[in-house]
Write a protein that binds this DNA or RNA. Structure first.
Lengths: 342, 342
DNA sequence: CAATCAAATGACAGCGCTATCATTTCTTGG
DNA sequence: CCAAGAAATGATAGCGCTGTCATTTGATTG
């Protein structure tokens, strides 16, 4: 119920509120001694600036919005942790806005959010980051935004992401180096850009080692566990079987493991399984799933960084900032060298 | 970049800004015709009130905070969807604050958040809802809050939750009605209040049907998948085995399934397994897990409802509001009647 | 139809801060 | 030691709304 205002701090420090404001906003032209005096008074009074007032009077709202419409709670959760931690470090706060990319009035909803909240920036996760109506609304209002792992129209705005192709490439190489030659691949949802990138990495790795991609071992999935199950059954019910299957995401990899289970194929001895995303389930299932960890936390925190520093608000030499973060290949128990006796 | 203010609306409607304000805030004493005139002008101008200004001038901030420190992304995600949907319906927004219940300066952090944001209310999820420092900070600032499924000190503040005991009771009854007599139970983490409630329901159901709880079939788990695995091994490696195991949560149930797998016991034919929480993994594993679904979305939305209507701000007859929502028993493929031949 | 009172509307201050511009204080060189 | 410019500080006007209280309008009565 406290209500310590900037005026109180000014009074205690024996200075004008403007000087206090300068110190609080790290503005130049304040003597060191004065700065200390202000800081001490603020600390003594446990002063907390009123966001509404700052926002109303000034140009910044100290609010970053996070828009999502994502079927994966774990992904969103990591994004939030990364974003929130970066925001808090600079006195910003995070508001979350679940949006429905299927909705008709999406554009109006987004416009409403932007103008009532006057957000300083917005972080967009897939698939919202590829929704033209959302991007248009954001651009029309002049709100800076950063896209996380966008699929399309990459040069349209600032973005952060990771190198999906190289990650898939390296995971595949791991499998090959274990001794696998016949490796199956399950594609992700066709509407998702990562689908092609990951497949590309797979193919490149195979080719680079002089291996051939058997089309019978490549199936089109939908990123869902069920689709992984179905694809795996289709692949494994053939006379010739691969000794390893690399699924484009963990959910599908879980489906693959379930299918193997049903066919009495033991993982990893008779079939190695690799996933992508490092979802919580990957380390919960038995055996633990080998997978690729996206640097979700870091991507989100980098996105906020760009927004807060306002780097995301200006083009440099005709292009927007774009950052690729490092992924991590995590080999667990669902992969091993193939058994010689087939 | 639009900047339609209340003044613009007033001008267009030919009324004072105060009258416009009245309409926008659903205040009484406005003629029907006047109200329509304002609404129409606002619509024509696509007016969006400025939250900062409303908040600075008035008593409300239109901001609800969600505090969490939860290891389960799926839970938090559902909470957010429920909370956000209720908030949006009333022009409120949700800010999220991941907090660290282990941190030393937690109290200061919470105080800071409250006073800069001037939140109209806060929703607390476990385990934050049981952290005394957080509750104290909230109470000291006079910020209304609602606890979701609190463990301790139930009468201290408004809360929403579900009847864990009855849910466990009904799930157990389902198992018994299938024909199971020897049923194992894995307790949750001893620090978690739900642990006892769920166990209580289990015991009550057994007793009510004249069955005896075999202490050798009851083990203390920790809510983790690993602990479920360990407890299941301990239970199943005895000369006498139960035909079903009811784990206090899904993660442990997954561990039970993994243990059964390793012992070559097929689920559900040789061992029925039931969980609690309906995590995403429950419908991903094979066979799909029978479990209890918490009404997370509804609880969160009810929590916001209490905050927005300000019911959470006042005691009635010496007690705070408290709402128990309906759970759902979901029987899937991990349970079936016991096979006669043991 | 004037008197009375409730309902409807409006004028205006001020929420706590930042932005602009004026003023004061400090440096520095001749 | 003073002028001149730079650096530091302060006075004041809003930002867009809500709260308070004054004023106007309309309904109701004898």
């Amino acid at each position: 119920m406290s209500a310590v205002t900037i005026t109180d701090v000014a009074a205690r420090a024996g200075l004008s509120i403007k000087t206090v404001s300068r110190v609080l906003n790290n503005e130049p032209n304040v003597r060191e001694k004065t700065r200390d005096r202000v800081l001490e008074a603020a600390r003594a009074l446990d002063y907390q600036p009123n966001l509404s007032a700052r926002s109303l009077a000034g140009a910044r709202s100290f609010l970053i919005g996070l828009f999502f419409d994502n079927p994966s709670p774990a992904y969103v959760y990591d994004v939030q942790l990364g974003a929130a931690s970066r925001c808090r470090a600079s006195g910003y706060h995070l508001t979350i806005e679940p949006v429905d990319t299927q909705a008709d009035d999406l554009e109006r909803v987004v416009r409403g959010i932007i103008s009532t909240l006057r957000l300083d920036g917005v972080v967009l996760t897939p698939p919202v980051c590829d929704d033209d109506r959302v991007l248009r609304a954001l651009e029309a209002s002049g709100t800076p935004y950063v896209r996380m792992s966008p699929d399309r129209d990459l040069g349209r705005a600032p973005r952060v992401g990771m190198d999906d192709t190289r990650a898939a490439y390296e995971m595949t190489l791991n499998l090959i180096d274990m001794g696998h030659v016949a490796i199956g691949f399950i594609l992700g949802h066709p509407d998702h850009g990562a689908t092609n990138l990951r497949y590309k990495g797979f193919v490149e790795a195979m080719t680079s080692r002089g291996l051939v991609v058997n089309p019978a071992f490549v199936k089109q999935g939908l990123f869902s566990s069920q689709s992984g199950f179905d694809c795996a059954e289709a692949i494994l019910n053939q006379p010739q079987r691969p000794t390893a299957i690399f699924a484009s995401n963990d959910d599908m990899a879980l489906g693959v493991m379930a299918a193997a289970n049903r066919l009495k194929l033991s993982v990893p001895d008779q079939l190695s399984v690799a996933g992508f995303d490092n979802t919580p389930a990957a380390s919960t299932v038995w055996p633990h799933l080998s997978t690729v960890a996206q640097p979700i936390f870091n991507m989100a925190s980098a996105a906020c960084e760009l927004l807060i520093s306002r780097e995301a608000a200006v083009m440099v030499e005709g292009t927007w900032v774009s950052q690729l973060m490092d992924f991590e290949i995590i080999m667990r128990d669902s992969t091993c060298p193939p058994t010689p006796a087939l």
